[in-house]
Design a protein around this nucleic acid. Sequence first.
DNA 1: CTGAAAGCGCTTACAG
DNA 2: CTGAAAGCGCTTACAG
Lengths: 354, 354
Amino acid sequence: MDGSALVDASLLETADERTRVTIRHVAEAAGVSVATASKALNERGRMMPETRQRVQDAARRLGFRPNAMARALISQRSFTLGLLTNDTYGRFTLPIAAGLSAAMADRGVSVFLCAIEDDPARAKLNLEAMEDKRVDGLVVAGKRVDRALPIELPPLGMPVVHVNAACPPGGFGFVPDDEGAAFEAVTHLARLGRRRIAHVTGPRDFAAVSLREAGWRRALEENGLAPPNEALAGQWSEGFGFDTASRLFTDAENRPDAVFCGNDQIARGLIDALTAGGIRVPDDVAVVGFDNWEIFAQATRPPLTTLDMELKGLGREAGLTLLDLIDGKPVAPGLRRLPCRLVVRRSCGASETQ
Amino acid sequence: MDGSALVDASLLETADERTRVTIRHVAEAAGVSVATASKALNERGRMMPETRQRVQDAARRLGFRPNAMARALISQRSFTLGLLTNDTYGRFTLPIAAGLSAAMADRGVSVFLCAIEDDPARAKLNLEAMEDKRVDGLVVAGKRVDRALPIELPPLGMPVVHVNAACPPGGFGFVPDDEGAAFEAVTHLARLGRRRIAHVTGPRDFAAVSLREAGWRRALEENGLAPPNEALAGQWSEGFGFDTASRLFTDAENRPDAVFCGNDQIARGLIDALTAGGIRVPDDVAVVGFDNWEIFAQATRPPLTTLDMELKGLGREAGLTLLDLIDGKPVAPGLRRLPCRLVVRRSCGASETQ
DNA sequence: CTGAAAGCGCTTACAG
DNA sequence: CTGAAAGCGCTTACAG
């Protein structure tokens, strides 16, 4: 088949070719009524086994696939979901979306992607499209746990879950357990014998910053350690990590022997600066990051021990809960903090497990 | 409203509350028939202006939104698309998806996200879901231009476009213009006075590697320059860039004064190694990357001049073409190579424009 | 056991 | 100008 043939085909198949095989075709081919065909295909009611077989054979032979929209009209269930996100960059959204999409696909549910880019007009447009298409529910995914998306959720009875975003009171939220993850990381460092564990992190106004700092403090406390200094809050960037090294390591007397960083970029910048300054990682200083952004974590010299937020799992759990809500099952409202996973590489000085 | 109230609501609204307002409610409220209501709302046919107004007022008052699935059943157009992708990581897919989704949303078309992860079973599952949901067309997006996804496209008459993936003969493909982009980057370096412009890039078996190398050669030729050495092909990683620096710069006599890198990670690793070796960027060596992966390009010291593949635009154009195909408009088959954009930062030694 | 009828929510000729 | 009827593709009581 050459190109021009394809073009012609798409021009011509307006009526005839494009007409898909319907249950009526199947019924005719099997010599039964449409109602009987439906029952045969859906394994409902009692009927002669050979009739059922005849219908199913015809369906298979014709390649019949029931029209989901016709079914949706009857069942008042479209088996579709909307995923609204303002995370253009995709750092958080794509893993969440992939986890959601995979779990839903296994249950016959398809997911509409709505990229709204923090633009209220775009949000409204997409929300209306989701209403019109009669999605069964909505997943709202953001890039930080303390900010809501610029959407006014329609007052109509469509269940909504929130992932990695602020969750309104009485809503259903799914976020990584920042505090617990930080606690785990710092405990890991303490168990490895580190005693002066510093913390370098992102901007103060992020809830994730407070939570991770709290986990750091709790782990120090439970291990009988004191913070060598206040947490250093700044930016989520390599540059901040790089610049902070000098602040933290000028006083040779009071050097930390470990640094827990608020994200992988900070850890990367810090390690680069330490290396440039002749301080060895992990021998002199152990470093742990946060995010398991592989492209950073693997490329850091040495590779970075860090926390994986398990975003795929977050998307998956949010989707499954949304299905429960759609099915009318009772679900307790509130925020779920899902565990993160410590990924041990070389920067913490433990033997590598991954 | 507290949490328990919400739970109860979702349990109770099975029949009454959940029943949405239909055109019948609008018709009754306006005191006309359903047929008249439909015509009034769709601005079809002639009718008394006050009747039309009455219907439209009722619709607005009741918050009526027509059921897109009912319409789709009639019009044989669902105003939905499927986006199939195997790019879990999202490096390429998310910008493509965002560009596609935004352009489609403006035209009332919604996009199903199908993450198939190079798994044929998952691909089949999702493809069948797209068939069942009667999407009007399919966008197939990959992570490299020379590989097809593990899908057998159904033989039914649904238009398909391919983005950043191999495109079957007679198909419709959209890829970045790798050769042209490389040509632009190297010409830029030549214009800045660089004379010995080396090339360090990814694995040989990537078509993108050959194309970018071809662009490099053509630019050298057109500027009367000779390649200082063969292109160094290896990995798409920081590590490869880092290690390659020594190979390229050991011979002090024959040092390049510029390196065009196959991606930003290679450029980043190379620059790190040069810096560590006391070679200044851009003073001694100018460097240009490829991808404009901001998290790398901005964090590199100095910030990286690089090529942006304009993936959003790619997604957008692919979507618009798909709509044309769906509308039966004539579209020439074949591969479209869309231009990339040179983003000038500091690593090339030009004055910074961004 | 099987089929005719009614209906999901809408639109489109076609009568009045 | 307006409405009754038929129909998009399917399912579900309900008769036969």
